[in-house]
């Protein structure tokens, strides 16, 4: 006998309240700013969609967005294959497993601003270990405060150092969940190492890799602290990624309206790309 009542709503209410406070209300504040102009003193003027049009048409936004996509693309194309390769070469059992896991987890435990500061000092041409070595031992002219290419190499390398571990750990979790019997079956079928990777390991890692790529996409697309500490967006605007630009507009210029409009566009792009990627990756499983 099925009874129907409305009690279920009581169980959903706490979550609704929580989401309202940590997401909906702040979000609506931003929406409120994005359609108005303010000069302080709590005085607002209605602007409609002007800020959105302005942002979407501005070269400055296009450039920052382009840099943002380039950065995310570069770190994904490096971190995902590298992470898989490291996970594949890690031991599956024995003494070295915990050692490897802890070593892998270390970079992720360091606070983000410390990572930025570390790499800043590390790469300084005259006193940094790497910077000094490159400039004065190898004789390569490397100064990320002057050279945009050097700055890009540095922020990408830093992110790879900081976050490849995430891909490694997730891939590794996928790998160790594969029973030995599958490897034996593949051997018996006569499969090469490549075939084992392509038809056994990769499909088994697919779910965790989807999550890894999603996390890395969202994190790198919204990255702020590390490049801000490392390069401050320079030299010039060469490493001014979207979030750095956003903070410049919001807090540097105190243009709250355009900054709010940009935040919403930024959020929409992140959401759209994540949704597209997730839908494509899980399309097979739904059928």
């Amino acid at each position: 006998m099925k009874t129907e009542n409305q009690k279920a709503w009581l169980f959903v209410l706490p979550v609704l309240a929580l989401v309202a406070f940590n997401a909906l209300i702040p979000m609506m504040t931003v929406v409120n700013y994005s359609v108005q102009e303010t000069f302080g003193d709590n005085v607002f003027f209605w602007q409609g969609l002007d800020w959105f049009q302005q942002i979407l048409r501005s070269d400055r936004f296009h450039d920052a967005l382009g840099r943002q996509f380039l950065f995310t693309f570069l770190i994904l194309i490096i971190e995902v294959p590298l992470g898989i390769a490291i996970a594949l070469s890690m031991p599956r059992k024995g003494f070295w497993v915990p050692v490897c896991l802890v070593l892998m987890a270390l970079p992720m435990l360091i606070p983000w601003n410390v990572v930025g500061a570390m790499w800043n000092i590390f790469t300084l041409p005259d006193i940094g270990l790497l910077g000094y070595f490159l400039n004065h031992v190898l004789g390569i002219n490397y100064d990320m405060t002057q050279d945009p290419v050097a700055a890009w190499i540095t922020i990408v390398t830093m992110d790879v150092w900081h976050w490849t571990s995430l891909v490694v750990l997730l891939s590794y979790a996928g790998l160790v969940s594969i029973p030995d019997a599958y490897y034996q079956a593949a051997k018996i079928d006569g499969a090469s190492n490549w075939a084992v990777f392509r038809f056994i390991q990769l499909p088994k890692m697919k779910t965790v890799l989807t999550i890894a790529i999603l996390l890395r996409f969202m994190d790198s697309f919204n990255i702020y602290t590390e490049p801000f500490v490392l390069t401050g967006g320079g030299p010039g605007n060469s490493t001014t990624l979207l979030s750095i630009d956003l903070v410049k507009i919001a807090l540097g210029q105190f243009d709250l309206g355009p900054a709010a409009a940009m935040s919403l566009i930024y959020f929409a792009i992140t959401l759209l790309v994540s949704w597209l990627f997730y839908t494509l990756m899980t399309k097979d499983d739904l059928n």
């Binding site: 019997a181 599958y182 034996q184 079956a185 051997k187 018996i188 079928d189 006569g190 499969a191 090469s192 038809f199 056994i200 499909p203």
Partner: peptide
Amino acid sequence: TQKRNISLVHQFFINYPHMTVFDNIASP
């Protein structure tokens, strides 16, 4: 093992989960 040309059927059903039955039989 790859070169011995043998087959093994386990107590637990070992088939490649993401392949169809046809592809499973055809894999070797």
